[in-house]
Design a protein around this nucleic acid. Structure first.
Lengths: 233, 233
DNA sequence: TAGTGGTCTAGACCACTTT
DNA sequence: AAGTGGTCTAGACCACTAC
């Protein structure tokens, strides 16, 4: 007796994916309709729908009403990057994390920053410089500017123990960010902080954050030479 | 008359998200059960289920059978990186793309590569060096090693016109890759290729690809100084 | 205007996990 | 053993879009 289990959307999803990968349904071709597939797999259309919806999310197929479901020409895979707090990265590597606040001052926003964040001139900003260490070796240099009017509480926050990044995330976990990632050569100042030599290549991450359309913060996170971002896709 | 539209899963999703963001349901707290929410919103449980499932995917809540749905402490957002072909990146910037094959040779795999890819010793590999240009300025330097036994056809492929990355993706669109991203200083050789000075900081991307568990290729993609990866999350 | 995917429902049963 | 999310069904109607 064939004790066929009830068909799951995973089964349909994986089988359709297999047919795409083995080019039973070549790139650019049209898949059967949901109704046809439901018949073939002997399941409800909703089940097929969920399977195909996931494949669409993953970038294998494109779906359009009336036209049907098409195998994508170039599967547009995306690498997913975890961009955590320095503390989390360090602790995930089983290293000891240490944080130090280096500089703190309240200023009026310089021109370049106002333009970067879209701030009115003369805005008050909190300027911070801090260091993150892993096993007492420099891990990340953080320079940050915070728009005080967006988070007035920050002026009274104690940032000696907890870094501004972490403080901001706690105060406001739901924030939109824009990222830019590039390589820089250490100037003598940075080299000094990072315990390396002038000219060393390092990865720098610029992070601009917004809350309800209001600019909150701009940060430059510079990682020690040799720091490597890894992922899989 | 209150012409209440039929409740959509988007409505439920957004309303629940709003309550989380405004801390009606604070971080770490337990949400009502699907059944309760379905009652409140006057919709089917399946609708609530889909809404909560999406919020779980997006990292706002955590769901466990029997325990219920909990607001996550630190919403674990992930940045998504598009890592396209050099040609695509260049053309997306409305610049003219040019490709050049610089070196091509068939060798036995050196030790470091065998170890990187997990190849048996004495494996035959195709070694390639090529350049990608944007508006005739160096854009990306590509050094690549391909495991010939994994893709025998590559030995006869014409790689004068189409780069190996693009060729491989066409030959086999469904590939798993491991990525490493870091900063390097240009040595005189690379500086020469990239039309820059020795010591310039550049972003280098290492890409190892596998097909059905079999190693296919290892590549080092070096971007011109000033190259910047941008994203939002 | 007709065809296709998009979504909702009401009910059912299952599977995991805590008690 | 009981509670909660996970999923499937069968049917219905809607919304977009190619024709």
């Amino acid at each position: 007796m064939n004790v066929q289990k009830r068909i799951s959307f995973q089964f349909v999803r994986d089988e359709v994916k297999r047919r795409i990968e083995t080019r039973v349904w070549p790139q650019g071709s049209l898949l059967p309709t949901e109704t046809q597939l439901a018949e073939e797999f002997n399941c409800a259309r909703a089940t097929v729908n969920r399977a195909l919806r996931e494949l669409a999310e993953q970038g294998f197929v494109e779906r359009k009403r009336k036209s049907g479901t098409r195998v994508k020409k170039s599967p547009s895979k995306q690498a997913k990057l975890e961009l955590s707090l320095a503390r989390q990265i360090v602790e995930d590597q089983n290293q000891t994390y240490r944080y130090a606040l280096v500089e703190r001052s309240v200023d009026t926003s310089p021109g370049w920053l106002s333009s970067q964040l879209g701030l009115p001139p003369q805005s008050q900003i909190l300027h911070l410089v801090c260091m993150h260490y892993a096993d007492n070796r420099p891990f990340q240099h953080e320079e940050r500017w915070i728009n005080i009017s967006a988070v007035p509480e920050v002026e009274d926050a104690n940032l000696e123990e907890v870094g501004p990044h972490e403080w901001l995330l706690n105060a406001n976990p739901f924030i939109d960010a824009e990222l830019a990632l590039y390589a820089i050569s250490a100037d003598s100042h940075l080299a000094d902080y990072m315990g390396t030599t002038t000219g060393a290549a390092m990865i720098q991450l610029e992070r601009t954050t917004w809350k309800d359309g209001q600019p909150v913060s701009f940060a430059r996170l510079t990682h020690h030479p040799g720091y490597c971002i890894r992922t899989r896709y």
